[in-house]
């Protein structure tokens, strides 16, 4: 089981802030493909992953990063702090 978190417009498109997912995805890209296959709202959120960022256990990562041992995955748009 893995906790998947969504922020900002990703959260709005998918319609929830977090969920627990049973997955055998090897990488972030594999997980994204599984989510897209689920429902249109996921496909809408992940239509262009180049406009998204991902964090694994609260550290920024790449979409080809492995998920082995990861407990928390977060998807969000580029950050706009400051």
């Amino acid at each position: 089981m893995i906790d998947v978190l969504y922020f900002a417009w990703v959260r709005e498109r998918i319609g929830l802030p977090r969920e627990r997912i049973e997955t055998r995805a090897a990488t972030v890209n594999d997980l994204v493909a599984e989510l897209i296959a689920r429902e249109d709202r996921y496909a809408a959120a992940f239509a262009d992953t180049s406009s998204l960022r991902v964090a694994l256990d609260q550290e920024l990562a790449e979409f080809d990063a492995p998920l082995a041992g990861v407990r928390e995955v977060a998807f969000f748009p580029p950050m706009t702090g400051g």
Partner: peptide, 29 residues
């Protein structure tokens, strides 16, 4: 400041009288 702008996980949304819009990250940042 440069790092807080684009590496700290904050997202701004502007609520105006005509609607609500997420602030887009700038290439310059």
């Amino acid at each position: 400041m440069d790092y807080l702008k684009s590496r700290a996980p904050f997202w701004k949304k502007e609520i105006t009288t005509s609607g609500a819009e997420w602030v887009a990250a700038k290439d310059a940042d």
